[in-house]
Write a protein that binds this DNA or RNA. Structure first.
Length: 211
DNA sequence: ACCCAGGTGGCCC
DNA sequence: GGGCCACATGGG
């Protein structure tokens, strides 16, 4: 089954996901860091905490005390690291780009990606989620669910970059498609691809296509 | 009382 | 380049 068919099936089964759930590009960046190894419901609480504290802003986060940030993001786990990393990223954006994300994303894609990856706490998936959902760049993020799904489909890839290339080479270079497909893969993973899950046999990707 | 969550960095080999 | 491990709270 080719990737577009996989996408179609997931779309038919789950419906449009409308990712990323955020009001601004900066909120995407904050959420991308907070959601690492963390359920989204807890990220939402933390985002609300930050908003209430007036901290969902590049300059505010860049200058806030770590303690204040930690208090807001405690509910997402790894909160000391995450607070420090939010501050780091914000300082980088404030100092190098004057807090102007449009200017940051106006760089050549590979430049922006390198800059993100150079930040502590921003690995491949976080960087690529930011580029896609905050920057609108044609990059396909690969997360643990993507790897699991691919294993089910018999797609064996060695590492992150190889799997990303696999998707980008086989899909139309369409940002909206990338956004929706990645979101659908996460939805699939949350519902059907857990380890040792007997419901695996009910995965929509296994169902016969009904005529 | 487990197990897992929309990962990452540091260390080891 | 891959295989562990710490990081930590919250929900099922």
């Amino acid at each position: 089954m080719d990737l577009l068919s996989v996408y179609q099936r997931l779309l038919n089964h789950f419906g449009p996901q409308g990712w990323w759930p955020a009001e601004t590009p900066f909120e995407v960046i904050v959420g991308a860091i907070l959601t690492q190894q963390t359920a989204w419901a807890n990220v939402e609480k933390a985002i609300q905490n930050l908003k209430r504290q007036g901290l969902l802003d590049v300059h505010a986060l860049a200058t806030a005390s770590l303690g204040r940030i930690e208090e807001c993001v405690r509910c997402t786990g790894f909160y000391r690291q995450k607070a420090a990393r939010l501050a780091d990223v914000s300082r980088y954006l404030a100092e190098k780009w004057g807090g102007d994300l449009d200017r940051f994303f106006a760089q050549p894609l590979e430049e922006a990606r390198k800059e993100l990856l150079a930040l502590k706490g921003v690995g491949f998936e976080t960087a690529d989620s930011i580029l896609l959902y905050a920057g609108g760049k044609p990059i396909f993020p690969v997360d643990a669910y993507t790897v699991r799904m691919c294993r089910c489909l018999g797609i064996e890839a060695k590492g992150y970059e190889e799997l990303r290339a696999y998707f980008e080479e086989r899909l139309p270079r369409d940002v909206e498609l990338y956004k929706e497909f990645h979101a659908l893969i996460v939805e699939l993973g949350k519902n059907y691809c857990r380890k040792n899950d007997p419901r695996c046999s009910k995965c929509p990707l296994r169902q016969k296509r009904q005529k």
